[in-house]
Simulated scan of single mutants.
Amino acid sequence: MKSKFISKGFIYLILIIGAAFILLPFIWMISTSLKPANEVLTVTPKWVPSEIRWENFKIAFKSAPFKRYFFNSVFVTVMVTVGELITTILAAYAFAKVDFKGKHIIFSLLIATMMVPGEVLIIPNFVTLSKLGWIDSYKALIIPWCGSIFAIFLLRQHFFSIPDELYYAAKIDGCTDFKYLWLIMVPIAKPAIITLVILKVIGSWNSFIWPLIMTNSEEMRTLPVALSNFSSEAGTEYHILMAAATMIILPMIILYIILQKHIISGVSKTGIKG
């Protein structure tokens, strides 16, 4: 009994230390966003500012066209998420329930592409979109991200867990394959779909490298790229930069905290069947 208690205590200690390492950068970011300028780069770090400066957020908001950046981020995130949902649901259904020649070979090749680092594809993708004339447009920010092999794999595994007897029963009632997918399989796979939506929204909202490379004008840039406005050759106002970063990151943190149970539920129910 005593050894079991010690073992649990050790596990909790490791989890607390891990959580501290993850949370400390966020705590420091919020603390810095509320500091006066003279307390940001002190020799002895100050976790609690001597004076809380809420006006840092107001200055950060006025230092860049945040309304335009916010619209771009919301629009791109929504369109990318909707596009990925459509392609993922259709592809996952095809790989899970439809028999066609070369299905397993094609799926294996798609899974193999997940081993290719995304950074390797940036230059070829840039050249391709440049030839198409899509640079500095919503098409460059949205269309390349409307598909995800990981999302297809995750949803395919969930579709595998749905018994085929439901399909046969639906066919007897005169249900078409398309109706069966959207009226029966999609509602059953709701936990996995919600998981994919949450992960895609967070990933798209926080995307930095791709919008930075694919956009040239302020009218097309998204919120993470706005952080570059606070750094110049003259230096960086870190308290203002951290205030801007807090405004950008906080919505996603709140979203994740509220919906984290759906992520856990979706992944735990997916399994590795198939």
Results as ranks from 00 to 15, higher is better:
E233M: 06
A226W: 00
E237C: 04
V225P: 07
A234P: 03
E233K: 02
A234K: 15
A243N: 09
F230I: 02
S217D: 13
T236L: 12
E237R: 12
E233I: 12
M220C: 06
N216P: 01
A234N: 14
M214W: 02
T215L: 11
G235D: 14
G235Y: 07
A234S: 13
A226T: 08
Y238T: 04
L241H: 04
A226I: 00
I240Y: 08
P224Q: 03
T215Y: 13
T215N: 12
Y238Q: 02
E219P: 05
H239R: 06
N229C: 00
T215K: 03
S228G: 05
H239A: 08
I240S: 08
S217W: 03
S232I: 04
S232K: 03
F230W: 03
T222V: 15
R221Q: 15
I213E: 03
E237T: 01
Y238E: 06
P224E: 04
Y238A: 09
N229F: 10
A226K: 00
S228H: 02
N216C: 02
I213R: 13
E219R: 15
F230D: 02
A243W: 10
N229I: 03
T222S: 10
M220A: 11
R221W: 09
E218L: 09
I213Q: 09
R221I: 15
H239C: 09
A234Q: 15
S228P: 00
